[in-house]
Simulated assay, not measured.
Amino acid sequence: MVRHKYVFVYSCLLIPLLFFLGIRIAPILYSFNISLREWDMLSEEKPFIGLQNFVQLFHDEIFLIALRNTVKYVVIGVPVQLLAGLAIALLLQRVNRFKGLFRTLYFIPYVTSVVAVSWVFRWTLLKNGIVNAWLIKLGLEPQLFLGSPSQGIYVVIAVMIWQSVGFQMLIFLTGLETIPKSYEEAAAIDGANSWQRLWHITLPLLNPVIVFSVVIASISFLQSFTQILNMTGGGPLNSTISMVLYIYNLAFKHFKMGEAAAATIILFVIILSLSLIQMKVLNRRVDYE
């Protein structure tokens, strides 16, 4: 009876594992093979060319721009999104009335269609859109926003932060609610002010949540695609193009599957390395007992 029970349990675990291996691991391994070949969809022969696709990428100016933009998405987007989510969570923790309503209002953008949100912002930020109309009424100069090579990327980052800050808020709220109130009460009795309690008690005990949020947010910004595609298409002058959008264009517009696979491998290595570094550097054990 016990043996049949274990057979059933391991069988149930094996099915999703096989699905994961077939859907996730196998395509990743296959992409390594493609990245080492001259893989043109219009040609029957796929000769092995070694690392030539990788060399070609680093001689492509657009790839270097996409790599630089992706770094900018992460460096700006992740800290601002986490700080905003933490600040909102700390404020909501102190709200007694309509707590559920406020949480819902902040979380709604996260569950709203990314495409719909992107197009709404694209329309409102047009040269003759609502935002510029307000600026003119206030006596200010209209702005190009998404049409400006210097402004476009920051507008896209702001939209991405706005849409995902509700998710970070919810994660931080969950972490804050697991912290025993007795720690802060004891610190308050000892004379610690609000800032000292936040810095020396709340944030250290939130460390596992912060590590999770940093890793998830970093991966999200490294994989930036939908907002960019729908708001700017990577323009103007490739000023907002990301690595994923570059890979998409290379594969499905220029049909250069070998180079696209090589760019995918580079992005995979960046995501994996950054995630491991973040978990190693940020992860700290805190125990006040």
Results as ranks from 00 to 15, higher is better:
141 E>Q: 14
152 G>D: 13
95 V>R: 10
67 L>Y: 06
147 G>A: 13
119 W>C: 01
166 G>S: 01
140 L>E: 11
90 L>K: 13
130 I>T: 08
127 K>G: 13
68 R>H: 11
158 A>E: 12
91 L>K: 09
159 V>G: 01
153 I>E: 06
106 Y>G: 00
51 L>I: 15
176 L>D: 05
132 N>C: 09
166 G>L: 10
89 A>T: 05
105 L>W: 07
51 L>K: 12
116 A>V: 10
144 L>P: 04
114 V>M: 11
97 R>M: 02
142 P>Q: 04
60 D>C: 03
163 Q>V: 07
91 L>M: 15
62 I>D: 01
148 S>T: 11
129 G>I: 03
124 T>R: 03
132 N>A: 03
77 G>I: 09
108 I>E: 06
159 V>I: 15
63 F>A: 00
147 G>W: 11
120 V>G: 08
93 Q>T: 11
72 K>M: 12
170 L>D: 02
74 V>S: 00
178 T>M: 08
122 R>P: 00
161 I>E: 04
110 Y>A: 14
145 F>Q: 02
138 L>P: 02
127 K>A: 12
74 V>Q: 00
105 L>S: 08
64 L>P: 00
98 F>D: 06
128 N>C: 09
102 F>H: 04
135 L>R: 08
170 L>R: 02
177 E>C: 05
59 H>Q: 14
169 M>Y: 08
172 F>E: 03
140 L>W: 05
132 N>E: 00
129 G>M: 08
125 L>T: 11
70 T>G: 07
83 L>F: 09
132 N>L: 10
99 K>V: 14
174 T>G: 13
139 G>S: 11
69 N>C: 14
129 G>H: 00
60 D>Q: 01
66 A>Y: 09
78 V>R: 00
113 S>D: 00
77 G>R: 04
143 Q>M: 15
123 W>F: 14
172 F>S: 02
77 G>K: 02
161 I>A: 07
151 Q>K: 07
56 Q>T: 09
59 H>T: 13
65 I>Y: 11
98 F>C: 04
169 M>Q: 13
71 V>R: 02
86 L>T: 02
89 A>D: 10
157 I>G: 10
104 T>Y: 06
93 Q>K: 14
111 V>A: 04
169 M>H: 13
164 S>A: 14
171 I>C: 04
100 G>K: 09
98 F>I: 11
50 G>K: 06
72 K>N: 12
99 K>M: 13
140 L>D: 12
144 L>A: 11
65 I>P: 03
130 I>A: 14
151 Q>H: 06
108 I>Q: 01
120 V>N: 12
108 I>M: 14
97 R>C: 11
65 I>H: 07
124 T>G: 00
92 L>C: 03
124 T>F: 15
92 L>T: 11
147 G>K: 08
104 T>C: 12
163 Q>N: 04
166 G>A: 13
155 V>P: 01
71 V>P: 05
82 L>G: 05
